[in-house]
Design a binder for these strands. Sequence first.
RNA 1: UCCGGUGUCGUCUAAAGGUAGGACAAGGGACUUUGAAUCCCUGAAUCAUGGUUCGAAUCCAUGCGCCGGAACCA
Length: 571
Amino acid sequence: MKAASASGERPRDDSAAPNFIADIVDEDLRTGKNGGRLQTRFPPEPNGYLHVGHAKAICLNFGIAEKAPGGLCNLRMDDTNPLAEEAHFVEAIQEDVRWLGFDWGDRLFFASDYFERLYECAVTLVKKGLAYVDSQTPEQIRENRGNYYKAGVDSPFRDRSVEENLALLEKMRRGELKEGEAVLRAKIDMAHKNLNFRDPLIYRIRHAAHHRTGDAWCIYPMYDFAHPLSDAFEGVTHSLCTLEFENHRPLYEWFLEHVGGFDPVPRQIEFARLNLTYTVLSKRKLQLLVNEKHVAGWDDPRMPTIAGMRRRGYLPESIRAFCERIGVAKRDNQVDVALLEHKLREDLNAHCPRMMAVLRPLKVVIENYPEGEVEYFEAQNHPEYPERGTRKIPFSRELYIEQDDFMENPPKKFFRLSPGQEVRLRSACLITCREVVKNDAGEVVELRCTWDPDSRGGSPKDGRKVKGTLHWVSAAHAVRAEVRLYDRLFNAEDPEGDEDKHFLEHLNPSSLEVLSECYVEPTLAEASVGERFQFERLGYFVVDPDSAPGRPVFNRTIGLRDSWAKVAAKA
RNA sequence: UCCGGUGUCGUCUAAAGGUAGGACAAGGGACUUUGAAUCCCUGAAUCAUGGUUCGAAUCCAUGCGCCGGAACCA
């Protein structure tokens, strides 16, 4: 079976993982719950960039919505905290979700769009005697909440009259109270085992400008209040979130029930967030990497952010395939980053045209090739898809090969160049190493070789077997390029895993290596930003936005699998 | 000392009382004008102890481990 179609689209993974949420949704659809309606939402807070963990949630929410005809997934910015959120994150989030391949149609929503409605819901609760304005200090509130083992104690303001509460809430809204002077709380049970039920806060005062509503409000709703209601306003049927909200679900349901009047009533279902080996996926820590300049920015190609992965050269379909492959469950997990890399290589292999590039050049002079002469060999653009055509690559007396492809004293099983050895130059011909030229320091600076003119195209006339094949470029024709070799950002499998070691101590000091004197075949001179290639025998590379005309910059997305490295390491 | 959740190959994840399967990783081999890709093969798991049952990963009981929870964050 072919791994991919001729068009280079990623292979359909028919073993697409079932998951417990899909099962629940299927069952709801089967029994006609919600009148057959199906609606989800992806609700990021615009206080940072999306990362691959969010991609899991995005794929889940948009994927689930496709289970029913007419199923929808909204994009909703959960912007209820003006201190944390910024408009430019809103833009970045949309770009990332779109790039991943998802479409929310005209349903981009903001929790802040609902501020007036949410306020009315709060008034409803007050009128029902289910919410009150508490004038304790933040410290008192915290103190009186109790702890895991000890019940909380009622606020002295808990039994204010409805009228008084209404008046006070109005004062809060009008800005007549200072921050911390009062909050609106639900009146539930200060002794509840679930601490979320100990009179949770509904509104707090923030005399701060909001990125969308400006100064229109100085009270802002809390997540536990705003989220279920926003879901209900939009007609969300299944509200999917991560495990840390499990303890909040009863409260989610409480607000919906007591505000009342919603149909459908959304149901919250929790799943385990993604953890990846050698990776950090907490917004706070990613922020730290950016702020302390351990990376160049949110879109640094080493970052697990969607923006970083995009710049690194990831294909969105690889990320989607990965998310499908890892499944959705409730147990904690730490997925091997190798699985992500596998999905990446799978798509890149099918997608990328082959090219030749020499990263660490070693000069080769073909002694029996006339000076000044040039001939062109035809190279396939993709060995698995001949229909993608060929290109001409120039060959001349002076070439560059990779330094790693020569060893003066090779170990056994080294199939590359060494004195007296014959190798094939990819798509070109056979050459034999005749002489090694060294500098005063004893370093190999040049190889004198001869070629077999009867091996044009790469196959010798006499049919002799040649095991090694090297990539190369013609010195006179090659284009100089900068290549950035990226490796994993952390060299510990679980960088957040030790208690005695800060995650920054696990930073990989060689996560970026910049090579400024690389030579790529002439075809690559016109490559445009974002174009991806396989540099044969090296890996997959993408043209970085830092490229200038005539001076391309390539990012290594990921190397090819390298079984020789394993053999060599063992020896 | 509390509440909630969760324990299946090294890692993810299936198996809704009936052969513990797949993918990645690992190891071996075939093929090869990329030591790539592809193909074939191998090893590898039900937290523990009891119970119910013809039959238990699945049901029950007890124990243990791990994760989350006491922001005017989400």
